[in-house]
């Protein structure tokens, strides 16, 4: 059993450099669009794109570090912006390879993309769309599709912050209240709607994390709203 698996792994390792050679400059926009669905969990792009968990990515090429208006960046990102650093293809490629390695202290918890071909693809897609954000239909389909799966009546529920405070104690065993993060993302200060959508995505098993599916699975709509209200206020 073990031998074929090892062989397969070896084959991939040997093939990878051959694939990436020459591909890094010309990514495939269509394949990149597939990958963008992952990015879209946190980032928006297009007309009226707002900041979500991550900043909007309109005009990202040529944009200084830490420059999306209204987004609360990490100190590290703001410092890089002040130092005059600007996003270009190479900088973005290095960043998405391993964000926390490229910029220590960044809020971006994405683990990075090891495969150069996949990075090239998603950057190709990003370059095309960030320069022409008006061309992107607002309702672009996404694999995650959480925005459209939560009933507006659920989004409209007003949470009880006192209840949220009690419920939050369960979250704070792993997520730090001060917003620091190390292996587990911060949930402090999230926009309420994003929080509710994300929790329902776990509850409905659209997002994949088993601990979060379990935690969200037994929270009622009111409880999720209460947590959202509490964590939003905690960031202020």
């Amino acid at each position: 059993m073990a031998a074929p698996r090892i062989f397969a792994a070896l084959a991939v390792t040997l093939l990878a450099p051959a694939l990436s050679a020459g591909a890094s400059e010309f990514g495939d926009v269509e394949r990149g669009a597939e990958y963008w669905k992952q990015c879209r969990t946190c980032h928006r792009i297009g007309p009226n794109a707002s900041n979500k968990v991550g900043p909007n990515l309109n005009f990202i090429f040529g944009r200084p570090f830490g420059a999306a208006e209204g987004y609360r960046y990490s100190k590290a990102m703001l410092a890089a912006g002040e130092a005059g650093r600007v996003w270009d293809l190479d900088q973005l490629d290095a960043y998405i390879t391993d964000p926390r390695d490229f910029l220590k202290g960044t809020k971006m918890t994405f683990k990075g993309i090891q495969n150069p071909q996949e990075r090239a693809d998603v950057l190709a897609w990003l370059r095309e769309n960030s320069d022409n954000p008006q061309n992107i239909p607002e309702a672009a389909p996404t694999a995650i599709g959480t925005d459209h799966s939560v009933d507006p009546a659920i989004l409209a529920i007003v949470g009880d912050p006192e209840y949220g405070e009690y419920l939050s104690s369960e979250c704070l065993t792993c997520h730090r209240a001060d917003g620091e993060m190390e292996g587990i993302p911060s949930v402090t200060g999230w926009p309420e709607e994003d929080f509710v959508i994300a929790m329902h995505a776990y509850k409905d098993k659209v997002r994949e994390h088993p601990v979060m599916q379990m935690m969200a699975g037994r929270l009622s709509n009111d409880e999720i709203a209460s947590l959202a209200t509490y964590f939003r206020a905690l960031g202020e």
Partner: peptide, 21 residues
Amino acid sequence: AELRKATFEESVGWYSGITTD
């Protein structure tokens, strides 16, 4: 291996979370 690594990194985050808690 990627999932196992993510699980380990998560445990490091949990350690930081629970000891702060």
